[in-house]
């Protein structure tokens, strides 16, 4: 029985086609990598733009310091520390300050029953907050 087969070796044209395909594959990989890199570089740009937006807005404001805010001065004088601007006044402390972690149950008890002595009462209530860590 006769057996047929292809001739071994390659012609110049075949070589260039084979090498050309490998080159094309490499180029496509490179283009894809470049695309990925560009996306990587640009994907966070919005953060800087939003930050810049806030700084630009700051520059356009007539008042740029917290203690010069007339409504801040008013809330201290009318409400938090009547007649003057006194930070961390008793009322400000009650409304504007908090406690963290294991101090919270006692703090809640204090808020619910203002007659309790400061921090003297351990947490003997049902409001134990669920988010509290096991310290």
């Amino acid at each position: 029985m006769k057996l047929f087969h292809e001739s071994e070796g390659i012609t110049r044209r075949q070589f260039f086609k084979g090498a050309g395909m490998l080159t094309v594959a490499a180029v496509i990989s490179g283009v894809f990598a470049k695309f990925g890199f560009d996306v990587f570089a640009a994907s966070d740009d919005y953060i800087a733009k939003r930050v810049a937006g806030l700084y630009t807005l700051d520059e356009s404001m007539a008042i740029r310091k917290s203690h010069e805010n007339p409504e801040i001065i008013q809330i201290y004088k009318d409400f938090l520390s009547p007649g003057k601007v006194e930070c961390v006044s008793p009322k400000a402390h009650h409304l504007l300050h908090t406690k963290y972690g294991n101090d919270i149950p006692g703090f809640i008890a204090e808020l619910k029953n203002p007659h309790l002595v400061h921090e003297a009462e351990p947490a003997a209530n049902e409001e134990t907050s669920t988010e509290e860590p096991a310290a």
Binding site: R50, V51, L54, Y55, L57, D58, E59, S60, M61, I63, R64, K65, S66, E68, N69, P70, E71, Q74, I75
Partner: peptide, 24 residues
């Protein structure tokens, strides 16, 4: 009453903003 803002408060939204407002 509780709606007036300043530039210092505006930058609270950016990293370093609370620090800068506090420093001012």
């Amino acid at each position: 009453f509780v709606g007036l803002s300043t530039g210092a408060a505006t930058i609270f939204g950016a990293t370093g903003g609370v620090m800068e407002a506090a420093l001012r």
